[in-house]
Every structure is written in C-alpha cells, then in structure tokens.
C-alpha cells in the first residue's frame, strides 16, 4: 500500500489465510434457537448464531426503538436493561442472552402512562433528533437505580457512555434530576 507498491490486494486477512486455522470441515449450525423474555413477554427466535442482541431485537422481534449508532460499544444508543443492569446490546451475541430478561424502551410505558424518565425527557427537552434517546432513557433508568444520580457531577459521569451528537446534555442531566426525585418519592 506504500508508494512503490505497484500492485496490492485486499483485505490483508485474506492474503494471510494460510497462517490461520483452517475452516472447520462443516459450517457450524446455520440457525440456533434463543429464548428470552422481552418486556415481560417470552420470546423464542431462530437466529443466525452471529446475530447480536441488538439485531435480534430490531430485525427479529421488531422492536426498533433500540438503536444502532456504532455497533461497537462506542455510543450507547443500543442500551437495554438485561437482568436489571444496563448493558450494550450491540456487544452481546443473542445466544449469550438465552433465558435473560430484557427491557427495551418499548417496555417502559404502561397503560399509556409514561415512565417518569420518559416524561422528564419531554419536560426538559432532553433530545433533538431523538436517535440516541431510547439509549439515554434506558441508561438513565440504570443510572438512577444504581444510585449514581445523587449529584449533577455523578449524573454527568455515569451518563457519559451515551453520546448525544445534538448535545442535549444539560437537559438530560436536568431530566434525570427530576425523574430521580419523582422515583424516590414513589
């Protein structure tokens, strides 16, 4: 790829395949069954084994509220709650979540009533384009329940895994403050 190279090929990996272990004689299973509970409902999927939890939710369960912003754990848009903890659905293969309980943004409102964090995000205009918002909201719920929303400085630090390119950060902090107080009262 340097100046004097008259001919190059891509990708490097392919060139060096001889250094690599051979493909197995047979391809691994082309589909696997995965069971999880999504927003309280049991759900069984037949998936390509490589499917991430994020793609499983979006493309196979049909819950597109959870967003793909980088697919590499660098932005937080895909945040969901797994077994009570906020996690990144893009960095988990769906198989690894077999039998897990998963909550997505679609599972927050009940009987048309918004979750306090959702309402606070509206009240404080805590978004503009809205794309990072489901991830911000799921992360905020985690942040509050972990006890990491006591001070503004804590909220900022513990919400830093969720990038908002529109930069609604001060409004997100204000929203979490309101929701925290409301959830503590409840």
């Amino acid at each position: 790829m340097t100046a004097d190279a008259s001919s190059v090929s891509t990708p490097w990996m392919a060139l060096r395949d001889t250094d690599r272990p051979a493909e197995p004689a047979t391809r691994p299973d082309t589909v696997v069954a995965v069971d999880f509970i999504v927003n309280g409902k049991p759900c069984r999927l037949e998936l390509d084994p490589r499917t991430t939890l994020l793609d499983a939710l979006r493309d196979h369960v049909g819950l597109t509220g959870t967003k793909k912003g980088c697919d590499h754990g660098q932005c937080g848009a895909c945040t969901v709650i797994v077994n009570g903890r906020r996690t990144l659905s893009c960095l988990s293969f769906a198989q690894m979540n077999d039998r897990d309980e998963i909550t997505t943004v679609e599972g927050l409102a009940s009987d048309g009533r918004l979750h306090p964090v959702q309402q606070a995000f509206i009240d404080h205009d805590a978004f503009q384009c809205g794309y990072c918002t489901p991830g911000q909201i799921m992360s905020a719920i985690g942040c509050i329940s972990e006890g990491h929303a006591e001070t503004d400085a804590d909220i900022r630090e513990y919400m830093s895994g969720n990038i908002c390119r529109c930069a609604a950060y001060p409004n997100i902090v204000a929203a979490i403050r309101q929701a925290r107080d409301e959830m503590e009262r409840a």
Binding site: E23, P24, T52, H72, L88, L91, F93, Q95, M96
Partner: peptide, 24 residues
Amino acid sequence: FIAGGTNMADYMKLGVMRPNLLVD
C-alpha cells in the same frame, strides 16, 4: 473464550478475531 463479550464481540465484528468456536 467469551465472558462479557465487550472486547471479543467488537473484535469479531471487525474481523480482528476470527474464532470458529466460542466457548461462553
């Protein structure tokens, strides 16, 4: 081996890690 997956899944997507068996 894969545990949390935060490093392994990332590197598998990038083609940096190319296992044909994952042991969870």
